[in-house]
Every structure is written in C-alpha cells, then in structure tokens.
C-alpha cells in the first residue's frame, strides 16, 4: 500500500512537471535563429534538399558518427551476451511455414531490399536516409526469418559489410579534413545541381555507408536473437 501511494505521488510529480511545460507552451510562429540559418543557407552550403539530412550528415556529422558507434556498441554487446556457448544438436519443433508466407517472402524480400537501398540513396532529396533505409533492409531480414525460422544468417558477411562501411564513413570524414573545410565536410565532391541525385557533395556516399552499416548492425541483432532462440 505504501509502495502504491509512492508510485502515485511520483506519477503526480511527473504530471506536475509536464503540466508546466504544457501550460507555457503556445506553439511556435517562427523559426529560431539556428533553424532560420539552416533554412536560408543550407541549400548553398550543403546542397541537400532534405534539411534534416543536411543537419544530420553535415552540420551535426560528428554526432551521427557517435550515434552509429553507440548502435555498433549495443549490437556488439547483444552478440557478446547471446553468443552460443554450446552447439545445440536438437532443434525446436516448428510448425511448417504456410505456403502464403513462404511464397510472399520470396517475392517481397528483394523488393524490400531494393526499397531500402532507394531510401538511403535518395536520403538527401526525399524523406528518408541511411538510418531509415538500414531499418527497412533489416525488416526484410525479419521476413526471411519468419518464413524460414531455422535459416542461418551469415554473421561473417554481416561483420564484413559492417566493418567496411564503418571504416569508409570515418575515412570520408578524414578526407573532409584533408581536402575541404573540416571533418565530414561534404564538399570533397562537387555540390552538383541542386535537387538531382548526384548533388550535395559527399552526402549520398556517406548515407550509403551509414545505411549499410545500420542495416548490418540491426541484422546482426536480429540474427543473434533468432539463433539464441533455438537453444532455449
């Protein structure tokens, strides 16, 4: 009883905290200084039509590198925790996958992969980008595993893709220091014509590597969880 009232008081405290935020909040009517600067000069400085991409890959590129590192770290810890200690000989008893799911996965998985690649290649023009595209690719992998739960996913291939794309991301950043204004500057390639696919300098290249890396990391998390299920 004491514990319940304590929880109630804590929740009430949070309500009070957020009520203050809510009561003072009236909605913005114009951009603040930083956002205004991005809106006015991002198309000249960066050349990306999608301003969120411009902020993520160029203005805040170092943060994105840190974010990818955190994701890598959590994928690494998951695979460390769930590594299979004993090679289990007995498999789970599974119902056979239905014909519909099996056929649909064969047709849909390539389409999902192509859509994921489309999303991260067009990240500087349309809503989307490396993280979203990577997540779409990983969702295709989930569909494969739903259709064939005992299928082995090659961890080796995943780790090769992951390391190469991570290394390329950092090397492109260092190339920014050598050939342009600073780390992860996208002007190492020409900015091109605004609004076309070959524009915004190095942003599409960086986003392709981010997409591959995120896709590989999420796939490795999924594959680890799936492999561990067999054992339990």
């Amino acid at each position: 009883m004491v514990k319940n009232s304590f929880i109630f008081v804590l929740l009430l405290g949070f309500v009070f905290l957020f009520f203050n935020l809510f009561a003072d909040f009236s909605g913005n009517t114009e951009l603040n200084g930083l956002a205004g600067h991005y809106a006015e000069s991002a198309h000249k400085e960066v050349g990306a039509a999608n301003l969120v991409t411009a902020v993520i890959v160029t203005y805040r590129g170092l943060d994105t590198l840190g974010e990818v590192t955190i994701l890598f770290l959590s994928a690494a810890i998951v695979s460390f925790l769930l590594k299979i200690e004993t090679a289990s000989t007995e498999n789970r008893k599974l119902r056979a996958t239905s014909e519909i799911l099996d056929t649909a996965s064969k047709i849909l998985v390539p389409v999902i992969f192509i859509f994921g690649i489309y999303v991260f290649i067009n990240g500087h023009l349309t809503p989307g980008g490396g993280f979203q595209g990577g997540a779409i690719i990983a969702s295709g992998l989930v569909l494969i595993l739903l259709a064939k739960p005992l299928r082995q996913i090659s961890q080796r291939l995943i780790s090769i893709i992951e390391s190469i794309s991570g290394l390329s991301f950092v090397l492109l950043g260092v190339a920014g220091i050598l050939f342009a204004a600073g780390f992860l500057d996208n002007k190492i390639l020409s900015l091109g014509k605004f609004g076309t696919i070959f524009s915004a300098g190095a942003i599409p290249v960086i986003y392709i590597f981010v997409g591959l890396k995120v896709g590989a990391e999420l796939s490795s998390i999924i594959a680890n969880l799936q492999e561990n299920q067999k054992e339990a």
Partner: peptide, 15 residues
C-alpha cells in the same frame, strides 16, 4: 535509433 539499440540490449539481458 539509440532507443532501438537500448531496447534490443535490454531484451538480450532479459533473455
């Protein structure tokens, strides 16, 4: 993205 990583990590601990 970071929330996703943390959730996956917590689920791995739970497992």
């Amino acid at each position: 993205v970071i929330g996703l990583g943390i959730t996956a990590l917590m689920l791995a601990y739970v497992l």
